[in-house]
């Protein structure tokens, strides 16, 4: 684990030094929220759970959760998801954390 932490720290320093955007270098998701109607998630790893009240998306190492009502997946591509509906909350989960 410590090796991975060191690797990440190095990467961060590298990207800071060369002014490379973090999401490219560190494999982080880019999430765009439009009001409470739409969420775009770029750079995802697949859907973990999908119901009309709750959507969980695998992102980097952890998960990204959306709760709301009447949720629907507007479109899904290999690296992009768009979720529509009435969004109530967003939440980042550590790997293994139960929501």
């Amino acid at each position: 684990m410590s090796l991975r932490d060191l690797q990440r720290k190095l990467k961060k320093q590298f990207s800071d030094f060369f002014e490379i955007p973090n999401d490219v270098m560190l494999d982080l998701p880019k999430i765009v929220l439009v009001g409470n109607l739409q969420v775009f998630i770029e750079n995802h790893r697949g859907i973990v759970e999908y119901t009309t009240e709750k959507v969980r998306v695998k992102v980097g190492e952890g998960e990204f959760g959306i709760t709301g009502s009447k949720l629907m997946l507007r479109n899904i591509k290999t690296d992009e998801i768009c979720v529509e509906g009435q969004i109530k909350s967003l939440c980042f989960l550590e790997p293994g954390e139960v929501w």
Binding site: G46, I47, V48, E49, Y50, T51, T52, L71, M72, L73, R74, N75, I76, K77, T78
Partner: peptide, 21 residues
């Protein structure tokens, strides 16, 4: 396993949209 179905489709480049439960 509907999530798996969606994931597999997306990873194979099949474009799905308007997915509603």
């Amino acid at each position: 396993f509907l999530e798996k179905f969606v994931n597999m489709a997306a990873s194979r480049g099949i474009y799905l949209w308007d997915i509603t439960r």
